[in-house]
């Protein structure tokens, strides 16, 4: 173990610079945050992830945000274990009817102010599962959505761009009020 730790010490970090902000996400957020942002987040964001019926593809890419290349915690973005600790709910999947109730309850368990990110193509409108007897539809059918990050699944860089846009806008909105 010692050898491995020494190597890591000398090889320098693998972590890459932050990606540029996604202009679409910034626009989408401008509207969302005028309505919702009432407090400075202090460049820190606690996210509770909810799989509302995804195929688990999005979860894998969210996981990747924590690897050494993206190292999402350096931006103050943290995934938390309880909705009670969260500023943001990050919801994946077409919302299945079997998960609808759990999603609503998790939303209500999250303290205000809160934002909802619908992650992935299914989360927008049900994607290729839309119209099934078992699917309620996109996340916005069940809880209000502030930002949508597209992709099937969205790669980690895209997710990171969306999250940084959220932080950036929240900080600006808070400064101007």
């Amino acid at each position: 173990m010692r050898k491995l730790l020494f190597q890591s010490f000398f090889q320098g970090p693998l972590t890459e610079p932050a990606p540029a902000l996604d202009p679409t996400a910034v626009d989408e957020l401008a509207t969302a945050l005028q309505r919702a942002a009432r407090r400075r987040l202090g460049r820190s964001l606690s996210i509770r992830e909810i799989d509302a019926g995804s195929c688990n593809g999005c979860e894998l890419e969210i996981h990747a945000l924590n690897n050494a290349y993206y190292d999402v915690e350096r931006f103050g973005i943290r995934f938390v274990a309880s909705p009670r600790h969260a500023d943001v709910l990050m919801v994946t999947g077409p919302v299945t009817k079997n998960m609808r109730d759990a999603l609503e309850r998790t939303y209500h368990a999250t303290p205000d102010p809160k934002w909802v990110i619908a992650l992935g193509d299914c989360a927008r409108d049900g994607g290729c599962f839309a119209g099934s007897y078992a699917v309620a539809g996109g996340v916005s059918q069940v809880v209000p959505v502030d930002l949508h990050i597209p992709g099937c699944p969205p790669p980690p860089v895209t997710i990171l761009q969306g999250l940084l846009a959220l932080l950036d806008r929240a900080a600006k909105t808070a400064a101007s009020t």
Binding site: P94, M99, C128, G131, S132, C152, P153
Partner: peptide
């Protein structure tokens, strides 16, 4: 996470079937 994939498969084209199959478990 039941999405009714086998229901969506019914009557679908082979191409759409492949797309759905690729989304059973990501």
């Amino acid at each position: 996470t039941h999405k009714g994939i086998e229901g969506l498969m019914r009557g679908a084209s082979v191409e759409r079937g492949a797309q759905l199959a690729g989304r059973v478990s990501g």
